[in-house]
Design a binder for these strands. Structure first.
Lengths: 169, 169
DNA sequence: GCTGAAATCACACATTA
DNA sequence: TAATGTGTGATTTCAGC
């Protein structure tokens, strides 16, 4: 039986704030959304427990660390059997350079986001993990030259009245 | 004159921990990396001040909120003048559905990651923001059917001795 | 790296709608 | 009855030494 959690205006405002900064004291957050500090804390705890907030993390700027290069890698497999696909996915999941890996519709099978220090590191990665892996029929790289937008946050409409959300527990 | 910050083993271990959970008390983190609590706090403060940690945020699970659909959108512009490109980028940056927007190499100009509630919402978005925008020559959608890996964190090698990092301030 | 003051968190209970 | 607000002790942060 699916449970639901109602996100009211206050919840959505809190989510908008916490997605920008989750180190703000609950007292300050409480003032901003006009509720008391314990209530604020309780609501945040509920958002975490329901899984609506899935994690609280420190974001690291990859470019500040010299991981200056991002690459999009499109891969087609030779053998598309379930077994071979699972094998490919498992191997990609283990690679530290692979930030994201999706099985996609269209004329190739996988779309990967790869973070590396420089072009040479990317070349080494491709030779080792992709072209040298045996089951890759074709691959192609695209290089983002400029990031026009990168949003980690979901913008909630703070005006709308209520929002029903199905939750896991 | 560029400044540098040396990331030692302790820093990297802290970064690995904080990328998973930044709500852990510094006391507990200190125990895990075998330093005192005030030292731990000072190191974390430095990591924030140097911009290595760029933000501390709550992550929201889009699927838990019914934003069950992700789409990759490839767009080619008709007019590629600097002015028109800036205009397109500015418009995409304003769209809440657009999570990421990159100017890429290859046979189309832009690669977009779009988060929507369902296929109908995606259709509405494309009609309004892309095909109805005037300067789009061609576009194509790809739909991720499975996410095999999604990493928000950069894995630091905790064994390596030191790592020199250029910082902004 | 240690200590202590100030702030924050988090609980029990009364209150309200 | 379920959710909010008030008051208070336990933790945590953070500066000075």
């Amino acid at each position: 039986m699916p449970k639901f959690h109602t996100l009211d205006k206050v919840d959505r405002k809190l989510l908008n704030l916490l997605q920008k900064d989750n180190q703000t004291p609950t007292r300050m957050l409480a003032d901003k959304v006009h509720i008391s500090q314990p209530t604020c804390l309780r609501r945040i705890r509920d958002l975490r427990e329901t899984g609506i907030i899935s994690a609280d993390v420190a974001m690291i700027d990859p470019f500040a660390l010299g991981y200056g290069m991002l690459a999009f890698l499109e891969v087609s497999l030779t053998n598309q059997s379930d077994e071979h696909m699972q094998d490919f996915e498992a191997r990609m999941a283990k690679e530290a350079e692979v930030m994201q890996c999706y099985f996609v519709s269209g004329d190739y099978d996988y779309f990967l986001v790869v973070h590396v220090i420089d072009m040479d590191a990317y070349y080494q990665f491709v030779r080792r993990a992709i072209s040298g892996s045996g089951n890759v029929r074709h691959f192609q790289s695209r290089f983002p030259m400029k990031c026009a937008k990168f949003a980690t946050r979901i913008a909630f409409d703070e005006k709308a009245a209520e929002l029903q959300v199905r939750i896991a527990k």
